[in-house]
């Protein structure tokens, strides 16, 4: 597999720059996968093999790492990944209702992606905002004190998903 052809110059440069922070290239594995994900949304087998080559790891070794971390996506995800906190404080303050509402509005369950590829719904552990529970994260944005009414607003901001409900 020709690494250069799979990874863009930009990706390669960023990965190598990240690797500079460590005495050992393979330490940048997680960061490299996140860089790939930043550009592609997820990490395909081919991309993973290329990253492995760049970091002098075997694909097996790198995939062992990739599949360990829940924020590395080895399957395609939607444009907007919605992370619903399901840990104790949010749960206590109605996270289930929020999640159900989202499911209903998007027509997908946890772990699924809308047919138009706009949203993926995933559970996430405590987001460190328990005093503002329940909370959600969409992309890199944290949404606190979420209630059902806010969900409509939120989906307007990111664009309504097309569903065949």
């Amino acid at each position: 597999m020709n690494e250069a052809r799979i990874l863009s110059e930009q990706e390669t440069a960023e990965i190598l720059a990240a690797a500079d922070h460590y005495p050992d290239k393979s330490a940048a594995s997680v960061e490299a996968l996140k860089i790939v994900q930043k550009y592609r949304g997820w990490v395909s087998d081919d991309a993973l093999k290329s990253v492995a080559g760049l970091l002098k790891m075997s694909p097996d070794e790198l995939d062992g790492v990739a599949t360990f971390y829940n924020l590395i996506f080895r399957k395609p995800v939607g444009e907007n990944v919605i992370l619903c906190c399901d840990s104790v404080s949010c749960w206590m303050l109605g996270a289930d209702r929020i999640r159900e509402r989202l499911s209903e509005r998007l027509g997908i369950g946890l772990g699924e992606t809308t047919a138009d590829g706009r949203y993926t719904l995933l559970p996430i552990v405590c987001l460190g905002a328990c005093d503002r529970a329940p909370v959600l994260m969409v992309g890199e944005e944290l949404y606190e004190d979420v209630d059902e009414s806010k969900i409509d607003e939120l989906l307007k901001r990111y664009g309504e998903a097309w569903t065949n409900r």
């Binding site: 075997s58 070794e61 599949t67 360990f68």
Partner: peptide, 17 residues
Amino acid sequence: RDLDVFASRNKVYFGRF
């Protein structure tokens, strides 16, 4: 280098890429 452990918790998988 072509056998490893994948995933985690009670889903750990031992095999090839």
